[in-house]
């Protein structure tokens, strides 16, 4: 009888352990990760008031780098930051107030239109909204 009880005890411990080993991953699984959306459709990128005038910032919009510019009048612009020529990352030039690609001197205006140099196409535009001083960019593709 003693032996039976002993085995039952071990069975209980092993059973609990097994249950734990199965339940723990499941519980962890159920906690959603920080960005539970498989596709980024909008992104908060910081405070409008913290963003300097006539400056820019590159943010990661999912897999796409996006350049966000606050022009000297305080208007916000967001454009895909990959140059349409050879996919280099573009930058904002404060002096010329234009978007510029260092690889082959491609130049775009603040709305992303290709002005000079090799880029064949304009940069894709992103919508920018400011809600409660929070800058939010949104993809315009459906």
């Amino acid at each position: 009888m003693n032996r039976r009880k002993f085995i039952n005890g071990i069975m209980g411990i092993g059973g609990l352990g097994t249950l734990g080993a199965a339940v723990y991953p499941v519980l962890e699984y159920l906690v959603p990760p920080e960005s539970a959306e498989p596709n980024v459709s909008s992104l908060k990128i910081g405070k409008f008031s913290d963003f300097e005038m006539n400056s820019s910032k590159i943010v990661k919009f999912g897999r796409i780098p996006v350049i966000v510019v606050k022009d000297e009048k305080g208007m916000m612009h967001a454009l895909a930051a990959t140059c349409t020529h050879l996919d280099c990352i573009v930058q904002y030039r404060k002096d010329a107030k234009q978007i510029y690609c260092a690889c082959h001197n491609g130049v775009y205006d603040i709305k992303g239109r290709n002005l000079s140099g090799p880029p064949p196409k304009p940069l894709e535009q992103y919508a920018v909204k400011i809600i409660d001083d929070e800058i939010i960019i949104k993809s315009q593709k459906s």
Binding site: I7, I10, G14, L16, G17
Partner: peptide, 12 residues
């Protein structure tokens, strides 16, 4: 855990 449980069942 599985080993302990399995052995226990086997003994049982």
């Amino acid at each position: 855990a599985l080993l302990v449980f399995g052995i226990a069942i086997f003994l049982r």
